[in-house]
Design a protein around this nucleic acid. Sequence first.
DNA 1: CCACCTCAGGCAAGCGCTTTCCCAAGCAGC
DNA 2: GCTGCTTGGGAAAGCGCTTGCCTGAGGTGG
Lengths: 338, 338
Amino acid sequence: MATLADVARRAGVSPATASRVINGSSKTVTEELRDRVLRAVADLRYVPNAHAQLLARPQRSVVGVIVHDVSDPYFAEITRGLQRVATDSGKLLIICNSYRDPERELEYVDLLRGQQVAAMILAGSGYHDDSFTTRLNEQLAAYESTGGRVAVIGRHEHAGDAVMPANENGAYLLTRELLALGHRRIGVVAGPRLLTTTTDRLAGLRRALAERELTLPEEHVRYAEFDRDSGADATASLLDGVPGMTAVMALNDSMAVGALSLLRARNVAVPDRISVTGFDDMPIARDVTPTLTTVRLPLVEMGARAMTLALEPGIAGDRIEVLDAGVVLRDSTGPAPA
Amino acid sequence: MATLADVARRAGVSPATASRVINGSSKTVTEELRDRVLRAVADLRYVPNAHAQLLARPQRSVVGVIVHDVSDPYFAEITRGLQRVATDSGKLLIICNSYRDPERELEYVDLLRGQQVAAMILAGSGYHDDSFTTRLNEQLAAYESTGGRVAVIGRHEHAGDAVMPANENGAYLLTRELLALGHRRIGVVAGPRLLTTTTDRLAGLRRALAERELTLPEEHVRYAEFDRDSGADATASLLDGVPGMTAVMALNDSMAVGALSLLRARNVAVPDRISVTGFDDMPIARDVTPTLTTVRLPLVEMGARAMTLALEPGIAGDRIEVLDAGVVLRDSTGPAPA
DNA sequence: CCACCTCAGGCAAGCGCTTTCCCAAGCAGC
DNA sequence: GCTGCTTGGGAAAGCGCTTGCCTGAGGTGG
């Protein structure tokens, strides 16, 4: 690999001069030397060693992102928003998948710290796990105490800049729609118990029920993984365990798609016999049959806002932005059968 | 940010000793000093500066990946395969989205070179653009000449290790199915003209037609972007422009989903009046209605193989692995109407 | 004509780490 | 008791780059 010294030698100048023309320093360099250096760079196909540069000039230009899984459409959308803003500010993104493993998340925080990232974005649900939360906060605090910036998306366990989706309120609004349609026995296909996303959405649901002096029996809830096949399994279990159920509320769209697929396999008419709802309004929601009633979350926007918070100069405070959710009524919901 | 020197000072040892205990050098260190160092590390929440480490010990541990867009399910699957193998080898991944912009692709190659990555993986269709191809190959050659490893997925323009999906053959097999069902007037929703993926798939289609002494008139092809809405638009255009068409072959699943959605909007029965096929067998293919006939590509496997090739020690040769494609018949295809 | 200023360009320090080499102390063997 | 080994620990060089500071040449003004 060619080094700056090689370039300088070939151009017959000092490394200092070469460095100056290569990254346009304020110091002026004669036209002639500049040309010689540029030619040497081209001849040698020289590319500066980014690590050496970072060491010499502590000017951080990469941002770390920790998500559960980029290939999950939910995070793919968020990441798109993050990317856009990062690219606009000339930052490179390092994306890390924790696969919902808290330990791995902790590892990644240190890894990114070692990479001297300008900022870290943690996206995705938090965990109900105090010991983990404490450790995470310690590590983040250590990072922030040396000038690092942190922004989180959708997790309340970390004090600081945050972008929050209206999980609670979205579920509340959606439940009200279901209640208005006459549904009373609602089965819930929930996500993992430990995720705050799950509990937040359940809380909204319960609030809407409480307004009508209804409650959600624990037997009407199935906790599953946030994916399609788990959604199908949970739905099967609800079907067998909750007689008279007229609606299935899945706490994300992937699980709702699984629910639809299972109901079709069992020849249960949707929405005539059972209504189904999702959450997140993934692109797929409008392509399944029947099209899926769900809650729209401005995911790209959330990503963009979070990156903006993290990159914004000035003191990183406790800025919390809640982005609102709205119900999208489609064909998978209808009046409860008599 | 605490440095090794800080740790050493606090532990009352030399930086050399601290370094040795921190990354388990072969040299032995007394129990007592080791403890002191470890305690200092914990107290200071010390994390080694990865850049300094890379400079001092040129042991590359990150791999660069350039894809068109990770949030596209096609690449999400490939990336999942890449990730798995990379993680198993203790490599960190830097994922770069080129958004199908050749210039950006070029920039990323240099950027990754500057990052001293151990290997680069370029995934996604190549371009029919000689000037670009030449420049790309030059840059890659420069990288490889200094010990860098390159593997490509699905692009033939670069000599070296490659994993190729059977685009041509997959399209061939799929077309044969359509022909067997009696379809003769087939409309094609193609991807961008400049992508080799598009031309490869068209080539397979033409080969199957040629076997029956049929040809594909250029008016039956619509070139569009590889996404849902473009697929819908192209289908609309085919519907209006190709009277008597009995099948729509979309060259990827997203576009096929768009086609289905448009046909439903226009009340055209699928597959009774028009059959629809996709390509790639994305997860969504089994969740749309009717479920989508498509070509299955082993995407995760392709990613895994590519990473293995890139990481495998020994001379990187011109190993080319072609992973085969298979037709998946579902409900969106049926006999051509009389 | 000389002192002084300006400015292009080079020297060298230093970023945080690893690792080779060397030193000193402890030990065994004769 | 001396030589000669082993062994733990430190000094220092160096990875590739940036940049403050210095130098020397040329230009200006008195």
